[in-house]
Design a binder for these strands. Structure first.
Length: 424
RNA sequence: GUGGGUGUAGCUCAGUUGGUUAGAGCGCCAGGUUGUGGCCCUGGAGGUCACGGGUUCAAUUCCCGUCAUUCACCCCA
């Protein structure tokens, strides 16, 4: 075997993967459009200072850095980086384009890169499908995000998924209530593991981070529904989001408030959410939240914003494992065989006519034995094969062979085209 | 960044308690005569047993390292 390797955590997408993938992307894009979001694309790279300091320490470490060109690169200097998500580039775009009509609703489906160690459902290059709304503080924004994500997943065939909902300010209030407002993140990462390591495990981890036992006690009391001082407004806000989302079509019960939901990225300021499936253990397939300060970090002009991001690769892993994809169809509908030199012109004209009629048509380039050509068509996964030999050419007909069912018949070209079109 | 698994034919994997010519299934190629795939039959090609070092009379098999890959942790889509 050849001694060549892909970059770690990156993959080729062969036709068998691309065909269902494009179908999924088409579905998602269609839902985004239906919800009134506008398309946007941004460059693969950003300036390093655009990305740094937005995601937190963990995130910053995982940014793929690009060396300066020329002498600076030789000295190891970095001035650019591959984008880590689609949210920060969007914030940069909004900051640079003050003329954009607000609120600005955009969708963006593009790859992002993270220098993570790959594992199941995790890659170094993966595609995010984002929708965001910039310029509005209304809780309708959150509701729209939940509704569009829910609709996209539903249209893809997902039935069993849950949206966990929380608010960063509720977490902050809990940290304050146990006297550790400065250690919000270590508290959050500890409780985030509750379903994995249990209450005892979390208590142990909290102790390691220097939380006193009575602090842990009151923390668990709050997590289990106890009173958290000063979060009445935020808590009510979550209920408003839920009721708006339901009115927008999200089934009741799909959105659940969850005081343990943390979300690691630094830029979130208010409500946060993520979408999880129970079946394959894959983490979240979507996540998002409100980030009212991010755009202001670029322009000084504060612009509130909310978004949600669907992880295409994870959605794919789930769909594969749950058998939601169905058989991969070939891109080719008709394979035109090349029978004899004397009828090559008629053969090529037949291919041209099929293509003009919108039929995906491939063509035997090398010719050779008819049996071999049919085998090639079969392996390709083509539905039909077309033969134009001397017998057919004499009568002005073509031979259309059904590679799935079996039979074949002599038809005029127009009849053959009609047959192919009505069979799909 | 941390910890574990794996690396034998194009693919999925057997196997050698260290010992002459390393196997299977699938795939591939050719054939089963004249213009027909999927099934069947026959024949064939294809492997430095990841790479480097060590132990040994002898290593694909044991040990170490490197590389690759995979799973988990962290974090995340």
């Amino acid at each position: 075997m050849a001694e060549v390797f892909l970059p770690k955590g990156m993959r080729d997408l062969l036709p068998a993967q691309m065909i269902p993938r494009l179908a999924v992307i088409d579905t998602v894009r269609g839902v985004f459009r239906r919800f009134g979001f506008e398309p946007l694309e941004t460059p693969a790279m950003e300036r390093i200072e655009t990305l740094m300091g937005k995601y937190g320490d963990e995130g910053d470490k995982l940014i793929f850095r690009v060396l300066k060109r020329g002498e600076g690169g030789e000295r190891g200097e970095v001035d650019q980086a591959l984008r880590y998500d689609l949210t920060v580039p969007l914030a940069r775009v909004v900051a640079m384009n003050p003329a954009l009509p607000m609120p600005f609703r955009r969708y963006q489906i593009q790859p992002v890169w993270r220098a993570d160690r790959p594992q199941k459902g995790r890659f170094r290059e993966f595609t995010q499908c984002d929708v965001d709304i910039c310029g509005s503080e209304s809780p309708l924004c959150e509701a729209e995000c939940l509704a569009v994500a829910s609709a996209a997943l539903t249209e893809l065939g997902f039935r069993d998924f849950t949206i966990r909902l929380n608010d960063r300010r509720i977490l902050a209030a809990m940290a304050a209530a146990i006297g550790a407002p400065d250690r919000l993140m270590s508290m959050v990462t500890a409780i985030d593991k509750l379903d994995k390591i249990g209450e005892d495990g979390v208590r142990k981890e909290l102790a390691q981070h220097g939380f006193a036992e009575d602090a842990a006690d009151s923390l668990f009391a709050m997590l289990n529904g106890g009173h958290i001082p000063g979060i009445e407004a935020e808590d009510a806000g979550l209920d408003v989001i839920i009721s708006h989302a339901q009115a927008l079509g999200v089934p009741a019960g799909r959105v659940v408030k969850d005081r343990m939901l943390a979300r690691g990225l630094d830029y979130y300021t208010g409500p946060v959410y993520e979408i999880v499936v129970t079946e394959p253990k894959i983490g979240s397939i979507a996540g998002g939240g409100r980030y009212d300060e991010l755009i202001g970090m670029f322009s000084g002009r504060s612009v509130p914003a909310v978004g949600v991001s669907l992880g295409l690769e994870r959605i794919f892993v789930v769909m594969e494992e749950l058998g939601m994809l169905g058989a991969a169809a070939s891109a080719t509908e008709v394979f035109v065989t090349r029978f004899a030199e004397s009828t090559l012109t008629e053969t090529l004209q037949a291919a041209a006519a099929l293509r003009a009629a919108g039929v995906a048509t491939s063509l035997s380039l090398e010719g050779g034995k008819l049996g071999k050509q049919l085998k090639q068509a079969d392996k390709l996964g083509a539905r039909w094969a077309l033969v134009v030999g001397p017998d057919e050419a004499k009568q002005g007909l073509v031979q259309l062979k059904d590679l799935r069912g079996g039979g074949q018949e002599s038809l005029s070209l127009a009849e053959a085209i009609a047959r192919v079109q009505q069979a799909r």
